[in-house]
Each structure stands twice: as structure tokens, then as C-alpha cells.
Design a protein around this nucleic acid. Structure first.
Lengths: 94, 94
DNA sequence: TTCTTTTGTCTTCGTTCGTTGACACACTAG
DNA sequence: CTAGTGTGTCAACGAACGAAGACAAAAGAA
């Protein structure tokens, strides 16, 4: 599943936790975080630490993946122009 | 690509940045973070904020994905027993 | 319906985050 | 070789993080 925002991530964590029939307290204990932190994450807390997030999804039997996006599908983003500019800059390299 | 640790994530960010021929400064500006933060992330900083991480990989033309792991491939982890226990707990639900 | 469990929210506190600016070191181009 | 560029590291600082504990509200069970 693609995760465009921390909100989506939080929703997935909650959904998965429910599927595993775990309470927030139980999962928090397994991960080694406070229950309050997990509540916040599930609500999409943008400042959660990446390592705690990683541990949480691992405890949920999930894995983090990063994939290249299809540039054609991102016509509304500015990354394409940045990539092209970077490509031009690096092109004359000998 | 699977990302088991923040170290791996950092290495991927650096690798991708190089492929795009961007400097740390340029990428940091695009993302809206300090260069020092990006340096730390590329070195695998576990406490980096998830939202900043998300923005960084987005700027690199990458997307975050989360997938269910294959339980059989995780025989050395304790998550399998946790999942089974949770399954048992929820089994008698009517 | 009542009772129990789960979740949401809050305060307090010590710790650490991200930023800024500077400097050292490594790398690259000519 | 030198000059310029890129990266690594550091200290200081204000902001905010995560933990702990408590209570309220919502959800679930009987």
C-alpha cells in the first residue's frame, strides 16, 4: 500500500492493529513506546520519530518499502523539472 | 526496495540523491530542512521526524510503501507468536 | 440496560530535536 | 599543483518531543 502522508500511515497502523486484535497498550508495550505515542501516531502525528515508526510497523508484521515513482504520473508535481535540471547539470560530466 | 532499518533508508536517500546529481544543500532546500538534518538522515539518524523523511523521499521521486510481510520468512522473530496469540484471542468472536 | 475495556486527551518534566553558522576535511576541475 | 565545491561535524538555542500518570469519553461485552 502506498503511503502519501503520515495520516495514511497512522490509519494503516490502526487498521492493522485492529485486524490483529491488539489494544494500543499491548502494541505500545511490544514496540517499547508509550500508549500516548501510539495514539498520536494513529492520528497521523507528523513528528513521530522514524525509528519508532519502523519498529511499530515491524511489530504489526508489516515492512517498509520505498519505490521509484512513475514520473509520468506526477505531472502536477515539480519533481520532474528538478530531475531534468539535475540531469542537464550532470550531463557534461567527463 | 525493502527498508529494514533507518540506516538502509539513509543509504538509499544518499544513493538516489547522487543519481539525481543533487547536492545536499539543494535537496535540503527543496525539502525545506537544514543541510545538517539531511546529512544526519543519510547517515541513518533514527530520530528523524517521519514527516520530514516523507517529504525527502517524495522530493527524490520516491514513494513510501508498506506491505505485509511473509510470516514464514520471519521465523527468527517473535511476531509470529504474537500474531498467533492475537488470532486465538479473537477467534471465538461471535 | 450496566459494567468493563479501550481510546482520547491533558499536564508535567527531562531530553533531544532541527536550525543556524562556522570550520575542517575530502573531492573535483583545470 | 590551486581553487572551488561538497560533505562532515560541532556548539548553542528555542521548540517540541516522548514518557508517565490521570481522568473523561467512547466502544464493547454481557
Amino acid at each position: 500500500m502506498n503511503i502519501p502522508s503520515v495520516k495514511d500511515l497512522g490509519a494503516l497502523v490502526r487498521d492493522r492493529r485492529h485486524k490483529l486484535r491488539m489494544t494500543q497498550q499491548a502494541l505500545a508495550e511490544k514496540v517499547g513506546v508509550s500508549r500516548a505515542w501510539l495514539v498520536a501516531l494513529e492520528q497521523g502525528k507528523p513528528s513521530a520519530q522514524i525509528d519508532l515508526v519502523l519498529r511499530t510497523i515491524r511489530e504489526l508484521g508489516l515492512s517498509l518499502r520505498i519505490e521509484a515513482e512513475n514520473p509520468a504520473a506526477r505531472s502536477h508535481e515539480i519533481d520532474l523539472s528538478a530531475i531534468l535540471q539535475a540531469g542537464k547539470k550532470g550531463a557534461p560530466k567527463k
